[in-house]
Design a protein around this nucleic acid. Structure first.
Lengths: 223, 223
DNA sequence: GCAAAAGTGTTCGCAATACACCCATGC
DNA sequence: GCATGGGTGTATTGCGAACACTTTTGC
């Protein structure tokens, strides 16, 4: 028994404009579900690792090049209208918001949607988005996820709002700052925001070098 | 491009005899890797969910019926000698040691191997075992994994040795017992071990009813 | 001077860790 | 009575949680 194999990409970015985690969707140009918003992806049609296929499809459809893709899981397509046997493997990627620069030769219209407000999605894409989101939440407990999603320099309150968006829960500002200051891989810069109509915030950055040693020892998520 | 899709099963059980987590392997009866120990599994050849296929293959090859299977992830088979495109999806299951009762009509010789000492495995099976083990370790942080692996009645020290086997790390006996006694879903029985040449241990059991409420709140893993 | 967001300390309770000896049984 | 594994308590420490006001800037 043979299968067509599809890959789906859940591209996530943190929009500092409205402090929301967003997922990139494309408008389908073919049946089924033509015209609807859906996850970018496509059928595996080259003898290469699925992640490579996923990155290529993503590049074609959205014009975005992502640095890496992390597998979420495989799904047996349950749609009873498809006669042929189908399976799909989904991947998530974390993208810095400012790096979103769709190439001109993309084949689909792409748009960001805030995670708690994604539109109704065809097939099992809604579930895939949920699964991926949950995986990122879990990943953030073991790895420095915000490193991939925040700009190189950021104020602490932005980091806090990122975590609030990721876990959809408010955090105590003082406890949060206390926690961050204990982290070995976040360092303060001697630089302030400018041109804001309120007290300017100090900027921070991630120290990539300090990551390697951690992951087990220090707590990576805020309270 | 079409794929043959395989499923692989990582069946885990806790052997109270030597206090080790073990994985069930079968001896391959066909090429490639004929005669070697490998994970039970096979090609998906029916239009059904992969997990169902996995359970059926498992039943055929080892004679074991497992209550459920949990997906680990999908793999693109990287073996360059296979001309045809192959993918595989692996599943793990947790089995109570005493429930291992292979049916007579099984097609392969099956044997348990202690997790830290699995033999060299063909294909990418070694990696699959490692991935599955890690997933079980993670699952134990959110779900009552020992419930599936220990007998209905067990002494506390057996539970401790299970956790020590799972995480390959020694635990402090007094702290462990203190922790267990705080769990709402482990209850002491008015029953003792018998016929042991030392002080008999008290038996405990899991209270299935108390699981539902937890998973987030109470810490599920020992120190 | 006012609006808007940044930044700052302390207290309390509990959970995590470390640690050494007595107990009950079979032989 | 001795070998074997089962069982017990306390003190310390550091982290998680709760909580309200002052500071700096642009306009």
């Amino acid at each position: 028994m043979l299968f067509k194999l599809a890959v789906d990409c859940i591209i996530l970015a943190y929009d500092p404009g409205d402090n929301q985690l967003k997922v990139l969707l494309v408008q389908r140009e073919n049946e089924p579900a033509k015209g609807q918003w859906a996850l970018p992806g496509g059928f595996v049609d080259e003898p290469e690792d699925f992640a490579v296929t996923a990155a290529r499809k993503l590049r074609q459809e959205t014009g975005v090049t992502v640095p890496y893709l992390e597998q979420v899981r495989a799904y047996a397509l349950t749609d009873p209208t498809v006669g042929q046997r189908l399976a799909s493997v989904s991947y998530y990627a974390l993208l810095e918001w400012a790096h979103y620069a769709p190439a001109a030769d993309r084949t689909h219209l792409a748009q960001w949607f805030a995670l708690p407000h994604v539109p109704a999605l065809p097939f099992d894409h809604a579930r895939k988005v949920q699964d991926a989101w949950q995986r990122v939440q879990e990943a953030a407990r073991n790895r420095p996820v915000p490193f991939y999603l925040l700009p190189p320099k950021f104020p602490l309150n932005q980091l806090q709002r990122f975590y609030e968006a990721l876990y959809q829960a408010p955090l105590d500002n003082r406890n949060f700052r206390k926690w961050v200051k204990g982290l070995p891989y976040v360092e303060a810069l001697a630089e302030l925001e400018t041109n804001v109509s309120h007290r300017p915030s100090q900027l921070y950055q991630f120290k990539a070098s300090a990551y390697a040693a951690f992951g087990q020892a220090t707590r990576l998520t805020p309270y």
